[in-house]
């Protein structure tokens, strides 16, 4: 394997809860408790697990939305967890995040153009709006949307379209690593398939590395090269897609796989 683009060692993110009642003790929740993995350039690693297993916290810690408690995360050889917000800001261009809820992740007051233009100006990729609009139109085309949508507001779009715009906001920066947190979970099944195909295609074409966080094993199988199964803040099993899905070793992985409802039908993929 080539040099990893992201290398995480013993990552811990703990939260202090508010004391319950007047006399209650503060509790420490170990959301992420000693997680290690590598992502190679161009590789898609999925973090899969049930709610509360800490998979989303891993993504949020890597983007500085949460503070890590301990551990190391080497991105291009630099430990990003110890960087100050100001030091980390330029790196945000390279580490981008796709969020779950397409209805909540776009600012309702901004036009699509403003939403997509903002990261360009922040990172100095466009000097003026004329330059920005060219890039915005290109990126909208990339995610399958017409450039005419630029002047509209998020509420004029369906969930699937909004998620495409969310993906455009990420792709416009040409990042090296994309963290997708339940990126297709809120979408209708028929739309989910479109967006999933789009993410897969964009990833293949651009060679971006991806950390794909999801609870849906079907989605994970479809998109990943490797899979890490998380349970209670730890990775209980990690391997290639085929190792995990065809020969699961850990009891929890097996339990997850057997819990999925299956449709008995004649093969219809024709």
């Amino acid at each position: 394997m080539t040099e990893a683009i992201l290398s995480i060692r013993d990552l811990k993110t703990h939260f202090q809860t508010q004391a319950a009642g007047f006399l209650g003790e503060k509790k420490v929740i170990k959301a992420v408790d000693g997680v290690s993995f590598d992502i190679a350039p161009g590789e898609v690693l999925s973090l899969v697990g049930e709610s509360g297993c800490g998979k989303s916290t891993v993504g949020r810690t890597l983007t500085h939305l949460e503070k890590s408690t301990a551990g190391q995360a080497l991105f291009d050889g630099q430990d990003i967890l110890t960087l100050s917000p100001a030091q980390f800001r330029p790196l945000r261009r390279d580490i981008q995040m796709i969020f779950q809820d397409p209805f909540a992740s776009l600012n309702p007051r901004l036009t699509i153009e403003q939403t997509l233009g903002e990261p360009l100006f922040i990172h100095g990729l466009a000097k003026n709006w004329a330059e920005a609009r060219v890039l915005i139109a290109e990126t909208l085309d990339l995610v399958g949307m017409a450039p005419e949508v630029m002047t509209r507001h998020p509420h004029e779009f369906s969930g699937g379209q909004r998620q495409r715009i969310g993906i455009a906001r990420v792709m416009i920066l040409k990042p090296k690593l994309v963290i997708a947190d339940e990126a297709v979970s809120a979408l209708d099944v028929s739309i989910q398939a479109q967006v999933l195909n789009l993410i897969k295609k964009l990833q293949r074409d651009s060679g971006i590395s991806m950390l794909f966080i999801s609870h849906d094993l079907g989605v994970v199988r479809h998109i990943s090269d490797r899979v890490a199964v998380m349970y209670q803040g730890e990775i209980v099993e990690m391997g290639t897609k085929h190792e995990i899905f065809e020969n699961p070793q850990h009891a929890y992985t097996r339990k997850l796989l057997s819990a999925i409802p299956r449709i008995k039908t004649r093969q219809v993929n024709a």
Partner: peptide, 15 residues
Amino acid sequence: NSIPVVDHDVEWLEA
């Protein structure tokens, strides 16, 4: 066809 299945690989979903 839109549902990604866990039991076998599908290259592209027929969305």
